[in-house]
Structure formats: structure tokens, C-alpha cells
Design a binder for these strands. Structure first.
Lengths: 189, 189
DNA sequence: ACGCTAATCTAGCGGCGCTAGATATTCTGC
DNA sequence: GCAGAATATCTAGCGCCGCTAGATTAGCGT
């Protein structure tokens, strides 16, 4: 079976190569610059090879997004695991930092049209985990915790995209984070 | 001068016709369906005519967005003008309702790449007005009011786009609004 | 009525996502 | 070792996109 194994391994490597090339090119020049022709050129294969791995360009972007879900969940978990009193602030900061450091991956995850199901039966585990971290960061004994987490997520997401699209100035991002955390923190101060 | 006048008037009418056709087609089938060829067909002119009015497709979308800024500002102003005690909630509700009723106009305004300057010297008046209404709805004597308004806007925007892209369920929108208003309202309750 | 300008159209460029059919490569059985 | 089958890959092309140059038409002033 070792020949078949090797083939499968090589295929998997090429799969990863494509996803990495797509992510890197997107981070460098934006998703519009990621065309199937350029991508094929980067991996030294012809266009149709891409379609033996992926259903289409959207599928490649979804693969990049999935990698992002993993990393984001990990980053957030690191913060909640620390268990410091200002978990909420740290988790929010980690979310914003992820978006800042990998804007186009973030875009693939949360902005561009996607067929990835959210809050559904076949939602990627990492994506569920991300939401769970937000939920946890808000602390126990909250009224309608899911909805609260959704609103928190909305605020974080809004800040990310409005700053990225230069509709809100980048300046003041840290103060906005303070404001947000104050608003969503327990009001028993 | 009346001949020139008539020509200018007809040109202006055709301009409006194009913008309306673009908006209607987008509302019906999404922005991807708005191609210069289809648009030209809808107004019974050939493609190049579009380019005598607009620099390109992005410019047409910007025109649709500008119309949206006017309407949104008007809608929000109506709420603040009423001066009821729960202005904040009403303004937020009006914002969400605008986005719900004209999703693709909203998309052109706040999601798609734009060359419209926000918070700049040549920001459209209606856009400034919109932000001013949010600011006013939060009430006086707030610490860092601009930043607070930016965070509120972020939360509203996040809710809009995450629901529209089906990343957050449409269900519970009203409760989320309650949560948001509670969080951003004066905590002197 | 006619020449000229301005308005409009026809036709086409390069690039896009994607795919059918041809070609090259690798494996299998003798 | 080698023919033929199966698989992997490529070449070439389809229909679409945004956009534009150059030909053509229409309508004005004289």
C-alpha cells in the first residue's frame, strides 16, 4: 500500500500548498488578486489541478477560512484558560488582534459569502469553539447568554470591518475596546 | 439656452434611471447580477453610455450608496426628533430596519470597498448626519462620546452583516436589540 | 439644405472562473 | 521487459466580466 500512501501524502501536500499560496497571495494583494491562473502559476501546475482538489475558488477560500477558525479558537482559548479577572477584555483583545494580524483570512471567515454553516449541525468544531470562548468570557449567570454573546461578537466584528474598510479611524481602537468591555462587563462595579 | 437645458435635464434623468436600475436589480438579484451589460439593457442604451455618466461600476454603486445615506439619515433624524425617552432604542431599531429593508443599498454603503471618505473633510453631509444622530441618541455628558458612538455603530453594523450573511440566526433580533440598548444605555437604572 | 459637433453604438481587448478533450505518465499483468 | 489500462496532467477554449477605441448616427447652427 505504500505507493498509494505516497500518492495520497503528495496529494495532501499539494492541497496544503494551494491553501498556503492562496492565503499568502491574498494577504499580500487581497482576494481579488487571487485568481485561479495566478494560483496555478504559484504552485507550478496548470489550472485544472486546482479543480481536482477544490470545487472552485470559493472552496479554496473556505479552506483558508477553516484554518483561520482553528487559529482563532486557539488564541481565544489561551486567554480564557489563563483565568485572569479581566478575561473578557483579553478575549476581545485577542479577537481583534487576530483580525488585525490576518485581515484577509478574517475576511474569508466572516465577511465573504460562504457556504459554511454557522450555528448548524455541521458547523466546524473550531467555529463552535470560538463562539463558546466568547460565551465563557462573559461569565456565568447571564440572562440570555447566547444572545449576549452574539451581540458582543457583532460589536467586535463591526469594529474589525469598519476599521479595515477605513470607515472608522484606526486611531482609538484600544479606547473603543475599553468602552466595549465596560458596556458588556457585569455592571456590579 | 433652453435646448442646452433640456439636454442637461435629460442627462440628469438618465443618470437617475441608471442609479435606480442598478439599485433595483441589486435588490432583486444581488450586486453580482449587476453587470454593465445588463444595466445597459435595462435602460435601453449601450454599455458605453454608462461610462459617460460614471467612471465605472464602482462609481454607480457609490451613487446608490449616496442615496442610501440620505434616507438613513432621514430615518434616524425622525426618531431623534421625536425625543421620547427611549430614543436610543428607537434610533437603533430604525438603523436595523433600514438595513433589513434595503440590504443591498446597505451593502453598497457600508460593506463593499468604497472610495467614499468617512470622517474626512469631504465626507458626504448625509453620512456625517447619520453619525451625528447616533451620537445624539446616546445623550449628553458621556465620556468620549465619539468613540462610544463608534462602538455602538460597530455593534449595529455587526448585527446587520452577521445576520444578513447568515452567520447569526435572524431569530432573536429584537432581543439582541434589547441587550444592546441595555448595555449602551446609561447605567443609572 | 448642409456641414459640424456631439451623442451613441459596434466591436473588441484582456482577464475572469471553469471544463472538455487530448496528451503524458504511471501502474498492472503477462 | 513490455503492451495496454488507468490515472494524472495539460492545452485550448467557452461564456462571461469591466472597460474603451473608433465608426456611425443624429441633431444642431448657419
Amino acid at each position: 500500500m505504500s505507493i498509494v500512501d505516497r500518492k495520497e501524502r503528495q496529494r495532501a501536500e499539494r492541497y496544503d500548498l494551494i491553501v498556503a499560496a492562496a492565503r499568502d497571495l491574498a494577504e499580500a494583494e487581497g482576494w481579488d488578486a487571487v485568481t485561479t491562473r495566478r494560483l496555478a502559476g504559484l504552485i507550478d501546475y496548470s489550472q485544472p489541478v486546482l479543480y481536482s482538489h477544490f470545487k472552485g475558488k470559493a472552496d479554496i477560500m473556505a479552506a483558508v477560512a477553516n484554518g483561520g477558525f482553528e487559529e482563532l479558537a486557539t488564541r481565544l482559548r489561551t486567554q480564557t484558560a489563563m483565568g485572569t479577572p479581566d478575561v473578557l477584555r483579553n478575549v476581545c483583545a485577542a479577537y481583534l488582534e487576530f483580525a488585525r494580524s490576518q485581515p484577509v483570512t478574517y475576511e474569508a471567515m466572516f465577511v465573504l459569502p460562504t457556504q459554511i454553516k454557522f450555528a448548524s449541525a455541521d458547523t466546524p468544531i473550531a467555529l463552535r469553539a470560538t463562539f463558546a470562548e466568547l460565551l465563557a468570557a462573559l461569565g456565568p449567570d447571564r440572562p440570555s447568554p447566547e444572545l449576549l454573546a452574539e451581540v458582543l461578537w457583532s460589536a467586535l466584528h463591526g469594529m474589525v470591518v469598519l476599521v479595515q474598510s477605513e470607515r472608522i479611524p484606526a486611531r482609538g481602537a484600544d479606547v473603543r475596546l475599553d468602552v466595549l468591555v465596560q458596556s458588556f462587563g457585569r455592571q456590579s462595579r
